[in-house]
Simulated scan of single mutants.
Amino acid sequence: MVKKIFGLVIFVPLGIVLIVLSVANRQTVRLALNPFQPDDQMLSISAPFFVFLFSAVIFGLLLGSAVTWFTQGKYRKRARNEARSALRWQAEADRHKSRAEEIAGSTLPQIPAK
């Protein structure tokens, strides 16, 4: 519930701001990728300004997600190792339990049936 409220508080105003920016910045601009010759048509892109804004936001989200995923790799590896260890311990406990039941079953005195 808190995540939903937090998401609404953050993402609704962010969406409104992005929509307002995209409506206000519909004019075509040119992004020059050659800093030494900005008039070079081969290394420039013309598009509405909001396209560049959205591209920057999407690029930032993807880059941030990738960095987070790589930095959390050690924790995922640790979790995998711990899960394998837990499975080994569980299997060993099951073996000991079944062996204890076998021993307990064979050492119980037999009561004659009437």
Rank of each mutant, 00 (worst) to 15 (best):
Q72Y: 13
S98Y: 12
Q90K: 14
P48Q: 00
K97S: 13
Q110P: 09
S55D: 07
G15V: 02
F52P: 00
L62W: 02
L21K: 13
A32P: 02
V51K: 05
L63A: 14
V23R: 15
I103C: 04
L14I: 07
R88S: 08
Q90V: 04
S46G: 07
F70H: 11
F6C: 10
L33C: 03
P48S: 01
R80S: 10
A32Q: 05
A83N: 06
F59N: 05
Y75T: 10
L61Q: 05
A56H: 03
F54T: 09
L87G: 14
A104F: 11
N81E: 08
V17W: 15
F59L: 14
D40S: 02
R76M: 05
G15Q: 03
K3G: 09
I19N: 08
A79H: 07
T28F: 15
W69I: 01
K3L: 11
P35E: 01
L61F: 08
A32S: 11
F6E: 14
R84K: 13
R78P: 12
I19H: 13
R80A: 12
K3F: 13
T71L: 09
P48D: 00
A93Q: 00
V9F: 02
L18Q: 11
L61N: 07
R80E: 12
M1L: 07
L8K: 07
A113G: 13
P109V: 10
K97M: 06
L43K: 15
R95K: 05
M1N: 10
R84C: 06
G73H: 11
Q90W: 14
A66N: 08
G7D: 11
V20G: 14
L33P: 13
E82W: 03
E101R: 11
R78K: 14
V17R: 15
S46E: 14
V12D: 01
L18N: 06
V20K: 13
K3T: 13
G73C: 12
